[in-house]
Amino acid sequence: MLSGKGFDQVINMSGGIKAWNDRVAFGPEDQGLELLTGNESIEETLIIAYSLEAGLQDFYLTMIDKVLDDAVKSLFRKLSDIEVIHQKRILEEYIQITGKEIDRETFESVTVEKAVEGGLTTEEYISLFKPDWNALPDIVDLAMSIEAQALDLYSRAADRSADDRSRGAMKKIAEEERAHLEQLAKLMDTL
């Protein structure tokens, strides 16, 4: 979120406070992942955004089975439903911007699939962060870090949008991701 906003040097401490306390090594978080430059076109950004929403939805659905707390299950289900709505809006935006008449199945199976070829499965992705499945704060923390990425992605997409309508659409989704973050933050405060 700081990168690309004029900050000279941004350093991520991998493993966070847990690694700091335990003095344990934490694998590189970019292991097996492809880093994009942050200079993708709005069209490319929308494809990435779509795959991210699918990933988020998959993440929440995976988590619903793993967590025991009913309130957390319910929130994750709600968030997963909203990610589906986001996917729909992103596809509409993609069609508007590119002028390509494409249905959801083709978009998913061809366009998005190609963009994330060689990427990680949700399980593999989550395992990079080594969460403690029995510790709810770990899981909520992970959800927050993914939602923060989404917020960042949409904010950048809004900045890059060529017209006001498109900018507005991206900003709206960014604000909704911010609301997700707030909901997760509230949940975290109760844990």
């Binding site: 350093i11 690694a19 700091w20 492809e34 990933g55 990425q149």
Partner: peptide, 15 residues
């Protein structure tokens, strides 16, 4: 669905 890193790359350090 598969995941890829899509942030602007940042330097990473272990603890």
């Amino acid at each position: 669905m598969r995941w890829k890193q899509f942030f602007t790359p940042v330097q990473s350090m272990n603890s």
